[in-house]
Design a binder for these strands. Structure first.
Length: 616
DNA sequence: CAGGAGACTTGTAAAGAAAATC
DNA sequence: GATTTTCTTTACAAGTCTCCTG
């Protein structure tokens, strides 16, 4: 029986799972838990990670079938940004070389700019223009009449002041720092948690964003605009009727207090730059986020089962006589093969000009019937999310290539490549192919399956733990490359690389020294043959071994870092890789989980750590 | 059925804390 | 013990996708 259940584990927690077996396993687990923890396990104590299984196995009774997200929700409301503190008299703003005292509102906005003086943003035309325009709105009419040219404004003294302030903060005594830390902890314990359905849960962002200048990414037309201060009157509170409602700060009122348990947020407000809504929600370690995350990976696993069918179908659709179907099929091929994002339309002029698959334009691809050794090569070059460049040359199948040529016919560079397609059409189609399937599921699926394959390929069973970790990171890296998760090389990269190299050199010297000593000890032992010399040999041997290990570890680190120069692993690790794959890998190879997930990550993936077994 | 509001996930940079080094 | 380096956490922008409305 034991072996039987172990076998189940082996199958069940593979990424390519069989749903029926899972159910069986879930039932068993639930029962086992129940038995293990017995009757004294009350709701409050029970960790959320068991809930998904329990609910699944108990048939999802009341609570989540009607779309509600909770029954009870109590919190203290958000923490507001501290009020503006006027600058000391001695810190001056100069206009046209002359000191000028600004009214408090104008001064506050000026400080936002002054704080960013060292940033590239303040050199950009759009940023300056937007800032200046919004700044003027805060000025008194007198100030408006005096200040007519941003170039004549001198914020440098203010900038110096803030630098000095932050320097002073660093120089504070231990006691002062301790005091601040304690105050922060108090704030966290009071406002950083809420009660949701009998659990005390950590809130993700309980502070309301302070006012400042909007920092759009890429070529954002709104960069530099003033992000205004949020007051209690702007904030909608969401909590349960029967909870203690949060109190607004003295003398203020909430915009509204509502009791909507169909949503997960605790508070919201409308931001003034894009007019979008911002939310206060729970931390990733919370039940509500964890369950959702789990669901996401379950959907990806369902895709695994029917992906062959879907692939066959879209290949078939390349031949369709309907243009829209062909476009849909080619787009889906890109999404599947290249892990492109869906690519919703965006309002022109409101955001940076970036695209995803469905919004690709003619100018973003180039076709090469022949390139080097390869045939039918497509070159992609466009700005994706966060204005990160996607550049890739890949050979495609002839049919795809011919279709692309067809799509390009009679079009201008700025025309849509897929003019008969958008994300809503695509997702509607995907929904018909599999329940819950959308474009982004392909990203999750392909990321996770890639990790699994790479781990299988790269891990050698007799590698040391550092070597295994390098393999893990390489597998992770393969995914990051697939998903195009790039980063700017860290500013100190070269230097830190050099430091590491010096360390390696030192170790090498140490090693050869230790080896020499070992040799000497051996010779000594040969000559004297006594116990003492024997012991000495052993000691030296151990030393050599230890240094060898250290050296190897350093070398692994160096390789890892070098390969990681421009690649950001975090996003894929946090959002795309089914944590059960990683956990199972750790268990299988005896790698401590802490080596791949830090504390926060372990909290976020608690559900998976708790779930996964040795093999997968 | 387009268009927009709303809700929630994904993404990078920067700040802050901790660890390593001088 | 101060300074530098590295790791962790936070901030908040920018996506995806759903749902509602006219």
């Amino acid at each position: 029986m034991f072996w039987l259940s172990l076998c189940f584990c082996l199958t069940v927690y593979r990424f390519d799972y069989k749903p029926k077996k899972v159910k069986v396993e879930l039932d068993k687990k639930a029962k086992k838990r129940k038995y293990e923890y017995g009757d004294d396990e009350d709701e409050e104590v029970r960790s959320f990670v068991q809930k998904p299984r329990i609910q699944q196995s108990w048939g999802n009774e009341e609570r989540y079938t009607d779309g509600s997200k909770w029954r009870f929700l109590e919190h203290k409301g958000p923490v507001f940004a501290p009020a503006y503190e006027p600058l000391p008299e001695k810190v001056k703003f100069y206009y046209n070389g002359k000191p000028m005292k600004l009214s408090a509102p104008a001064e506050e906005v000026a400080t936002f700019f002054a704080k960013m003086l060292d940033h590239e943003y303040t050199t950009k035309d759009i940023f300056r223009k937007n800032f200046y325009k919004d700044w003027r709105k805060e000025m008194t009419s007198e100030e408006k009449s005096i200040i007519t040219d941003l170039k004549k404004c001198d914020f440098s003294e203010m900038n110096e002041y803030f630098k000095a302030q932050s320097e002073a903060r660093k120089q504070m005594s231990k006691e002062e720092k301790q005091k601040i830390k304690e105050e922060n902890e108090r704030l966290l314990s009071e406002y950083g948690f809420c009660i949701m359905d009998n659990h005390r849960e950590r809130i993700g962002n309980f502070r309301i964003e302070p006012p400042g200048l909007f920092r759009g990414r890429g070529d954002h037309p709104k960069m530099g605009m003033l992000k205004r201060r949020i007051r209690p009157e702007d904030v909608i509170i969401n909590c349960s009727k029967d909870s203690k409602h949060p109190k607004p700060p003295p003398g203020t009122k909430w915009k509204e207090v509502r009791h909507d348990n169909k949503v997960t947020w605790l508070a919201s407000w409308t931001e003034n730059i894009q007019g979008s809504i911002k939310y206060i929600m729970l931390n990733p370690s919370s039940r509500i986020k964890g369950e959702k995350d789990w669901q996401k990976y379950e959907t990806a696993r369902r895709l695994k089962k029917c992906v062959d069918r879907i692939r066959t179908q879209y290949r078939e659709d390349w031949k369709s006589k309907e243009m829209r179907i062909r476009q849909r099929a080619v787009a889906l091929y890109f999404i599947d093969k290249l892990a492109l994002r869906a690519g919703n339309e965006k309002e022109e002029g409101e955001t940076a000009d970036t695209v995803g698959c469905c919004s690709l334009r003619v100018e973003h691809i180039k076709l090469f019937p022949k390139m080097d050794e390869q045939e039918y090569v497509v070159e992609f070059d466009f700005l994706g999310k966060d204005s990160i460049r996607y550049y890739n040359k890949i050979p495609v199948e002839k049919r795809v290539f011919k279709n692309l040529q067809l799509f390009l016919e009679n079009k201008q560079p700025e025309d849509d490549l897929f003019d008969r397609l958008n994300t809503s059409i695509l997702n509607k189609h995907l929904q018909e192919l599999m329940d819950g399937l959308t474009a982004k599921v392909f990203r999750t699926y392909n990321a996770s399956i890639t990790l699994q394959q790479q781990l299988k390929e790269l891990t050698c069973c007799d590698d040391s733990i550092p070597a295994k970790l390098l393999s893990y990171n390489r597998a992770n890296r393969a995914v990051a490359i697939l998903c195009n998760h790039q980063r700017a090389p860290p500013k100190t990269f070269e230097k830190s690389m050099q430091n590491l190299q010096t360390k390696i050199d030192e170790k090498q010297n140490q090693l050869s020294a230790a080896r020499k000593q070992l040799k000497a000890a051996k010779a000594n032992h040969k000559a004297s043959h006594d116990d003492k010399s024997k012991k000495a040999v052993e000691v030296k041997r151990k030393a050599v071994q230890r240094i060898e290990e250290q050296l190897m570890k350093l070398q692994m680190q160096a390789t890892d870092r070098e390969e990681n120069k421009q690649i950001a692993l975090g996003t894929s690790k946090l959002n795309y890789l089914d944590p059960r794959i990683s956990v199972a890998w750790c268990k299988k190879w005896g790698v401590p989980i802490e080596k791949i997930y830090n504390k926060t990550q372990r909290e976020k993936f608690a559900w998976a750590i708790d779930m996964a077994e040795k093999e997968f």
